[in-house]
Nucleic acid binder design. Structure first.
Lengths: 325, 325
DNA sequence: TTGTAGGCGTTATCAA
DNA sequence: TTGATAACGCCTACAA
């Protein structure tokens, strides 16, 4: 391995001259420059970022803490983060919580040990992990961003899609299509989040009606346990608050010989490849996952570079009309 | 920030005693131990991995170089890598090539600058990037693994699925279902890879017949340009060598009122969520992406730890029978 | 069982 | 314009 000292000796200049030449715009003599460049080329010098990090007491590493990466929902955000970090020459660490079997505290310790420049927590809306220890991170002055949490502002920047708007958009669309008996179908959605959707519903329907709320619990079968209830209640549109669930429900409806759209419209919250692949193609509310990632990275960078940043970023969802609603 | 020196002073012991206590199993006096532990707790000491890395001239960071992460094909592998690295307390860097706009050389320079412990290249089968500079990595003695390349062995460990076997499995399955006029449909698959599939075909069919080879080129429309050819040739089964293409072709067939399975069976190479979601659910050849990731990580770790490792790992595909074939 | 001193590769400070 | 020196936090001979 070639060090600064090596090329210094080889070029007959001091190490610090070379360091200055490489890292600042302080001018050196033409002659010196030539000698240095020659030495770098001949010995194949590559600077050592680890030594720099130690000297400067900072790294260019940002960590993303994510439940799992093999999920389009998260990988789309992560890709957005990667894109932005890459542009600014930051490196991206990935820590998959579901995979790692590390406690909250252990992960945070890891962050400190490695002098992580900033941490982006990506979570499910309903996820409440990293709620306690997060404050100790703030104490350590490690920049932190919470992506995809609809929790009350708590001292660190948050980014999330506007769920009320998403709901309003969706319900308006369904009403426009002549659907009046709407059911919200969800899975483990806590009440405080459900409230956003109900709010959106009443905004769209002028508070005239109430949707049917249907929670799919562990072990429930869509065909046997869910569809009959939809029929009993004369539901003509389901707004499914989870894309995968929407796909499965659409499948179950088709199997039960219920015409999607004509009999029951299906609207998906979340718009990835799988909505497009599903048959019929699902009309979906796009929550802008990639954009969420991009913005999260921008905010973590602003924090790292001690610049101003928005404490709360709310992304505007939009609707993508396909066949199912 | 609390350093070793700080707690040394606070505990009235030397820094090196503490270092030994923390990092080796050399025993210290009970009394000293107590003093040290107290100091660590009181001052909230966290070791500095960057300093360690500089001292030892090695990191615990492994980099995955991947075309894009927001793709189930790659993210499944990456998740497998993450799982294995996590178990061994290695960190995972992700570099998305499609996103980064970095040349091959620049990425490799980045690896050296950051003292990366090992590099896993994940690629498309057909990808030939990182073919030239890779040799300079080997010169630098950075452990390297190539995942998912079917190229002749070239001095660094390779992992890939057995494509011939995949093809044989698939064709055997189709023959068993009474399908005799088989077409291979692919997209940009180079000849040397196509050869594996043809080999598998002749193994399965005892060389009696030849499949129709159909390449989907940029801008081609499946319904207009592809299906008519299938019909003209009385094709009764398509083996699609790309999962996404399989999904789209299945869709186009349904739209053309061709019964999938009865009229034309569709078999997908690659088995992710999207085969399952597709209607009808696609029978698929699973290439074991997660396992590929796990094994890749194991091999990179073996290399890093100077242990023995397999130069070539070939994974056995298996078939997942669903509705389409 | 514990402490001292030097160095990993880089850079900031100060002096020349 | 350049060079000597010390320091970032940690670890390892070597000495005590």
């Amino acid at each position: 391995m070639t060090t600064l000292k090596d090329i210094a000796k080889h070029a007959n200049v001091s190490a610090c001259t070379i360091s200055r030449y490489l890292n600042s715009n302080i001018v050196v003599k033409k002659e010196t420059e030539a000698k240095i460049q020659l030495a770098i080329k001949e010995l194949g010098y590559v600077p050592n970022v680890v030594a720099k990090s130690l000297k400067h007491m900072e790294t260019f590493n940002v960590a993303v803490i994510v439940p799992k990466i093999n999920n389009l929902y998260y990988s789309e955000m992560t890709s957005g983060i990667s894109q932005t970090l890459g542009k600014h020459h930051y490196n991206l660490y990935i820590y998959e919580v579901d995979n790692l079997n590390l406690s909250e505290d252990e992960i945070l310790q890891l962050m400190r040990e490695n002098m992580i420049a900033g941490i982006i927590f990506i979570g499910l809306f309903s996820d409440v992990s990293f709620k306690e220890s997060i404050h100790s991170v703030v104490e350590w002055n490690i920049p932190v961003v919470y992506a995809n949490r609809c929790i009350p502002y708590d001292g660190f920047p948050l980014l999330y899609p506007d769920l009320t708007k998403a709901s309003k958009l969706g319900v308006e669309h369904l009403l426009l299509k002549g659907k009046n008996k709407i059911a919200f179908v969800h899975k483990h959605l806590p009440d405080h989040l459900l409230a956003y959707f109900l709010d959106g519903f009443s905004q769209a329907s002028n508070g005239e009606d109430q949707p049917l709320i249907m929670e799919i619990k562990e072990g429930m079968d869509l065909s046997a346990d869910c569809i009959p209830i939809l029929l009993e209640n004369n539901i003509d549109a389901v707004f499914v608050l989870n894309e995968m669930l929407a796909v499965n429900l659409a499948k179950a409806l088709v199997q039960a010989n219920i015409r999607i759209f004509e009999d029951i419209a299906v609207l998906s919250l979340g718009n990835s490849l799988i909505s497009e692949i599903s048959t019929p193609e699902l009309t979906s509310i796009d929550l802008q996952n990639r954009e969420l990632g991009i913005r999260s990275a921008e905010i973590i960078l602003s924090q790292i570079q001690k610049q101003e940043f928005e404490p709360i970023t709310v992304l505007e969802p939009f609707i993508v009309e396909r066949k199912s609603a």
